[in-house]
Design a protein around this nucleic acid. Structure first.
Lengths: 355, 355
DNA sequence: CAGAAAATGAGGTACGCACCTCAAAAACGC
DNA sequence: GCGTTTTTGAGGTGCGTACCTCATTTTCTG
């Protein structure tokens, strides 16, 4: 049987009330007594029963997940994954709300953040580009005691409590090896595409990709990256132009979104299966493109895991509990046609883990 | 506020005792009354607070994980991952014990299984080859109401409650694509190695591998698989002989354990980096071999996730709760040098997921 | 050493639920 | 309509903790 507060009281020779004062850091206890209680705790190996404690407190975890209001597949899928994880976690007193902010307006975002405590939120998960305004807003939140975790794209300067996402530099490197090895020994060129929604990710991926290509696959020439700014038309135009004019292009690395336009362009040009195409995120379009052979590999982070991890980490922070780093590390997944998971999840994204 | 049992009682116009009888399927309630209560539950959207319920029951989940007593790296790592997940889950009333059985003695295993209920175990996770004795023992357990999950290698004929592990056929296929693509267009031969601890896995992997190689990479000849029966000496001997005599061998697919002997043999022969080597499981040796370039890719299942998933699934079964299939699906991970996770976990295995 | 201040103890209530007992009410058989 | 069986209600106790009040004891101050 695990020891309880009563056991501690007996062991320390004090009353239950005193144990309670020590456990919950209430004032009015002598140093000496505090020590006696703590010794008893250590001796008995007491650990607070969190479920009972939460029951007594009738605690609930009101959490805000804040995402850009972009209509991108990725953000949509993430929002959905968060919603699902949230409703599943409702059993454990978690109340998650997904909020959106206008992508290009850091001040609006800051305003939302600032308003959170008044709205009763106790923790925040945030996916946003790092700006000075944002940094200050996050710091203010943390000063008020709200844990803040960065989602997908890190916010190191804000002093966020945790980052939940993959190592984008490593992801870029991984894409690099795959590209290099899949292309084989003969020379060729690689097209790199990137929207610029969250600059930090893209830059890191690109760096990792270039580093590997340069070092290990010198026979491949990596072309300058093409920014498509999330516009399918632009992407289509740029890609078809490049493919038509540069016969040496044998591979495409797509770092951002716009997978749908990309795969369609490739298929329209009859190049499906003739190029090595590597992209990020396993959206439904990428799924079918993998199956059709238009996309060779996808580098993805598991959104279900991401969402569940977010909730676990925020809850741990709110409970002042330690975090199981192993469990919260988001892996860089390589998805080929052959290891495409069937998707019992949302139908939007692969899944796994948790809780 | 979430509705409670009291709200149901009021809504249904019955007493708390009756609600309790209905909720816990106790006898002595008329059909009509049961319906009234259930209607109230549906109307209010009541969901039982599991943490409070478990507190009241002072429920604990005593679980046995049963593994072969093989000294293989894989089994050791799995045991460790289970232990760790177990001690972390101790906070949530989980008491996990890892038991071992003599690998080659199905009757001893059956005896252990049969003895479990008497020893107070309420759920079982089992990694073992499927034999008739085992099948009967598992069925007997399930008849007694103990949930049983199969670990790593499935036990379909036993009627186990759940299988926790990867789709080995898909894993073999994945290894196949990687091998084929990494080898490039020129012809060559591939060596396949397999111990035979858990026949089912190996067979499935082999089938998947062969299917892909045959269909997509006809220029590569896949040699007959070599059984090493877990003996490092035998493996070393077989491999060096093959490599010396068959100059066409450009790749090695190692389906089982004995990674250490394999990588050392390759390094001793000065072939590190000159062969495409794909193996299963990311043991410490494979990690360093990946870094050194001796191993090209590892197909792995995340043991931390596997362990956490095991506990979650068994707990869900014991609570008669539904399972989040998305979270419990064990992904087939492809690990290259570039996406080698740093291992905050056990140092023995990569990690991620689960709670 | 008296008086004030600080520390401690005793006890209760609550959280949401499980599980038990005993009496009262309702339904049933004949 | 009687006795019998079944169903229901009322109420209590406990799980392990939080949080509150009020009395009592101990310690400090001058």
């Amino acid at each position: 049987m695990r020891p309880t507060v009563n056991d501690i009281a007996r062991e320390a020779g004090v009353s239950l009330a005193t144990v309670d004062r020590v456990l919950n850091a209430r004032p009015g206890v002598r140093e000496k007594t505090i020590k006696a209680v703590n010794d008893a705790i250590a001796k008995l190996g007491y650990v607070r029963d969190l479920t009972a404690a939460n029951l007594a407190r009738s605690r609930n975890y009101r959490i805000a997940a804040i995402l850009p209001d972009a209509e991108s597949q990725f953000v949509q899928s993430l929002a959905q994954a968060l919603q699902e994880a949230g409703s599943l976690a409702a059993t454990s007193r978690v109340d998650l709300q997904v909020l959106r902010f206008p992508t290009e307006d850091p001040h609006a975002l800051a305003a939302i953040l600032t308003g959170l405590p008044a709205r009763g939120f106790a923790g925040v998960a945030l996916m946003a580009p790092e700006t000075p305004v944002l940094r200050d807003a996050v710091r203010a939140l943390r000063a008020k005691g709200l844990p803040v975790v960065a989602l997908v794209s890190d916010l190191p300067a804000t002093g966020r409590d945790h980052f939940i996402g993959t190592d984008n530099h490593a992801a870029g490197r991984t894409a690099g090896v795959l590209m290099g090895r899949f292309l084989g020994d003969s020379p060729g060129q690689v097209l790199v595409l990137g929207s610029s929604l969250l600059a930090r990710d893209m830059v890191e991926r690109r760096r990792g990709f270039d580093a590997v290509m340069l070092r290990d696959f010198p026979q491949i020439e990596v072309l300058q990256s093409l920014e498509t700014h999330g516009s399918p038309q632009l992407l289509r135009q740029v890609v078809s132009q490049m493919l038509a004019n540069a016969p040496g292009v044998r591979g495409i690395y797509s770092m951002g979104d716009g997978q749908r336009a990309l795969t369609q362009t490739i298929e329209d040009m009859g190049l499906s299966g003739k190029l090595v195409v590597i992209c990020h995120q396993l959206t439904p379009h990428v799924r079918s493109a993998l199956q059709a052979g238009t996309v060779t590999a996808a580098i993805s982070q598991n959104l279900g895991h991401l969402a569940r991890s977010t909730l676990r980490v925020l809850r741990a922070k709110l409970d002042q509990q330690p975090i199981d780093e192993g469990q919260e590390q988001i892996r860089i997944e390589i998805v080929l046609r052959e290891n495409l998971p069937d998707t019992p999840d949302s139908g939007l994204q692969t899944s796994e883990d948790a809780a």
